[in-house]
Design a protein around this nucleic acid. Structure first.
Length: 506
RNA sequence: CGGGGCGUGGCGCAGCCUGGUAGCGCGCCUGCUUUGGGAGCAGGAAGUCCCCAGUUCAAAUCUGGGCGCCCCGACCA
């Protein structure tokens, strides 16, 4: 008799949320820490997930006229100096290449040699190097707009790293556009936020709040930053995509000028927008439970695992034939532009096999044994339901309905997350309630507390930073549907400028 | 960069205080028995005890120095 374990993941979410998060990643085999400080190794199960997100998002981008390109990893140091706020925002986290050769040193080890005339920064983001190209691509209003995206890796030398959420190197996409008018650039800024919303809500099943960042939370160098924010199961906010209106700031820094139809010379209006492997962290934290990862079907690394039950060796051939035939039929079906991905796992490791796939978060587990073959059935478990709730389904019915079942799981995950967010979002008017809301009962080992507070804000940076200092709570966004001028500032009590979303954040 | 903690088979840890040449659980391999809710028994493989120096007959253990990592803050997608 095996020892009884209630949950596959230990500790549970309520026991120790940060540790639970690490354990999910380990148990699901998504990724692991690299021996390189702050970096991660994305393993096949995690990379397949990323590829699916990339594909979904890339299609959405291209549907709006964006084209992909690729710019250098290295950025001349001088480029970063061309936009004052930008350099200030990123200077502290830049990795810098200063040499181009290694030589045998005195101690026998290799030492950098061949000092570069100008140091190269490993891109933390590419506004500058892309701005440099844009300046050469644009001369007439007829050259505009330019709609470019690149899928790339970037490096930000963070103090503290957390796998998928904040790593020294991460994968992302960054879109960069240049326009003839401010209106058009603004339109593009909000259009891309719409694309992010679609991708994150429809594909990742993560409900988001859309809004504008406060000046303090703006991207360095941006005139305006729009963002989508989702609530994780520890009730903290995760920013899962940002879209920036850069005004003419970078156009001035990089001399992106064009001649108008009226023969005047003007600076272009630019935008940039990005989303990263951080979204995988969001998927983990918003959907998974104490038995492991739960993947949204539309981007799942695989959809179905077939688990042949072979009680005696004589059955093996029949069971495997049945499984392989089923796999072929399922694989031929299309689910949201992708063929259904089927795994067959015939490892002889007993019940641990089923739990492996539960921990990996695969949407559907299908057990196939002699009994099922006799009844022309399959035994199906859904990852959005408890591990023991499995049921027999006629084989043909399962094949016919599998995409509906996947859609149902997808919807269920979204609704579950939405209900959770709504349950932990409250409107707060007075300061004491606000402070209580964001203060844990046990300061030594804070329990999961707080959530999203919808409160008035007078618009002053002082109130914003006081709340940040007191509670580590920030303005996540000023929602687009915020009621202007309603109520009073939750900090100073003066007349409110807008109702904003306050939360602790990743 | 401040405060704390930790480096011992793949993973998690004990051993250190009081020096005597390394052990436990999980995992892995082999065999037999099992198998539809995380298998049992038997056997087996696997470790420069983070690095360097010192003390000592003898160092995972004591001393000094270094390196790395994790957690909590400030910074951030």
């Amino acid at each position: 008799m095996a020892k009884q374990v209630k949950t596959a993941i230990s500790p549970t979410r309520s026991e120790d949320y940060p540790e639970w998060y690490q354990q999910i990643i380990k148990a699901s085999d998504l990724a692991e820490r690299s021996t390189v400080r702050g970096c991660m190794v994305i393993k096949p199960w995690g990379y397949a997930l990323w590829e699916n997100i990339v594909q979904a998002m890339d299609n959405l981008f291209k549907a709006t006229g964006v084209k992909n390109a690729y710019f250098p990893l290295f950025i001349p140091l001088s480029f970063l100096e061309k936009e004052a706020e930008h350099v200030e925002g990123f200077a502290k986290e830049c990795a810098v290449v200063t040499h181009h050769r290694l030589e045998k040193g005195k101690s026998g080890g290799l030492e950098p040699a061949g000092k570069l005339a100008e140091p190269l920064v490993v891109r933390p983001t590419s506004e500058t190097i892309i701005g440099d190209s844009f300046s050469r691509w644009v001369s007439s209003y007829r050259d505009l707009p330019i709609l470019i995206n690149q899928w790339a890796n970037v490096v930000r030398w963070e103090m503290r790293t957390r796998i998928f959420l904040r790593t020294s190197e991460f994968l992302w996409q960054e879109g960069h556009t240049a326009h003839a008018t401010a209106e058009e650039a603004l339109e593009r800024t909000s259009m891309m936020l719409d694309v992010y919303t679609t991708c994150v809500e429809d594909y990742l099943a993560m409900p988001v709040i859309r809004g504008r960042k406060s000046p303090a939370e703006r991207f360095p160098g941006a005139v305006d930053t729009l963002a989508i924010e989702a609530m994780m199961q520890d009730r903290k906010a995760l920013q899962s995509g940002t879209s920036h209106f850069l005004g003419q700031n970078f156009a001035r820094g990089f001399d992106i000028k064009f001649q108008t139809a009226a023969e005047t010379e003007e600076y272009a209006w630019t935008t940039s927008w990005g989303s990263s492997t951080r979204m995988i962290g969001g998927i983990i934290m918003i959907h998974s439970d104490d038995d492991g990862l739960i993947l949204p079907p539309k981007v799942a690394s695989a959809h179905v695992v077939l688990l042949p039950i072979i009680r005696n060796p004589d059955d093996r051939q029949a069971v495997m034939d049945y499984a392989q035939k089923l796999a072929r039929e399922l694989s031929a079906k299309v689910y949201h532009q992708r063929n259904i991905l089927v795994e067959i796992d015939d490892r002889d490791i007993g019940g641990a096999r089923g739990w492996d796939w539960i921990k990996k978060g695969i949407p559907l587990r299908v057990e196939i044994g002699p009994r099922d073959i006799a009844e022309n059935a399959v035994f199906v478990g859904r990852r959005d339901q408890p591990p023991n709730e499995k049921s027999a389904v006629k084989r043909d019915q399962f094949v016919a309905e599998v995409t509906d079942i996947l859609d149902d799981i997808q919807q269920n995950l979204f609704q579950r997350a939405l209900a959770f967010r709504e349950a932990h979002t409250i409107e707060i008017e007075d300061q004491k309630t606000f402070y209580d809301f964001f203060t844990p009962q046990n300061a030594e080992k804070p329990e999961i507390h707080g959530g999203f507070a919808i409160s008035g804000w007078c618009g002053s940076a002082e109130c914003e930073s006081k709340i940040k200092e007191d509670l580590a709570v920030t303005i996540r966004c000023i929602p687009f549907d915020s009621e202007a001028g309603k109520g009073r500032c939750v900090c100073c009590g003066k007349k409110s400028e807008s109702q904003v979303v306050f939360a602790k954040a990743y």
